[in-house]
């Protein structure tokens, strides 16, 4: 999905600052596959080449519990609050045969809230349409 928000450079600066303080186990030169955060933030996070998800000590748990039925793209392209993620889990437990996550649920929610919450998009609430971005200019004949 889109990465961008040149206009949000100031906000991005704070996000990056937070990202650096939050993410302790940085490893260099991992494959980046997706984020909707800023490009700069992308550079501070590591992405698992198989799942495309942010590398973190909880990643194994997330992959084990959350990719049996669906692609991890569904996680990578979603942004929900903690309550929103809880609602998703409850729905999957009710409708899709997802098992009880037990004591792992808190860790999984911590992970989802940290990396896949809508906060990076909050500025969008200020506008009813964003400026066009990711324009690939080409010579028109």
């Amino acid at each position: 999905m889109n990465v961008r928000r040149v206009t949000l450079a100031v906000a991005a600066f704070f996000v990056i600052a937070m990202g650096i303080t939050c993410v302790s186990d940085l490893r260099n030169d991992q494959t980046t596959t997706d984020t909707t955060a800023t490009t700069s933030l992308v550079d501070t996070l590591n992405y698992d080449p198989h799942s495309g998800l942010v590398v973190d000590t909880t990643l194994g748990l997330v992959v084990a519990n959350c990719s049996g039925c669906h692609s991890t793209e569904l996680i990578r392209k979603s942004r929900f609050t903690r309550d929103g993620w809880i609602a998703k889990i409850r729905w999957m437990q009710k409708e899709q045969n997802l098992w009880d996550l037990g004591k792992n649920e808190k860790s999984i929610l911590d992970y989802l809230e940290k990396y896949y919450s809508p906060s990076s998009l909050d500025a969008r609430a200020q506008m009813r349409r964003e400026p066009l971005d990711d324009i690939q200019w080409y010579d028109y004949q």
């Binding site: 990465v3 991992q30 494959t31 980046t32 490009t39 992308v42 080449p49 198989h50 991890t72």
Partner: peptide, 10 residues
């Protein structure tokens, strides 16, 4: 997913 992309996503 795959490892077709570099760290900037290209």
């Amino acid at each position: 997913m795959n490892d077709y992309h570099n760290r900037r996503g290209f």
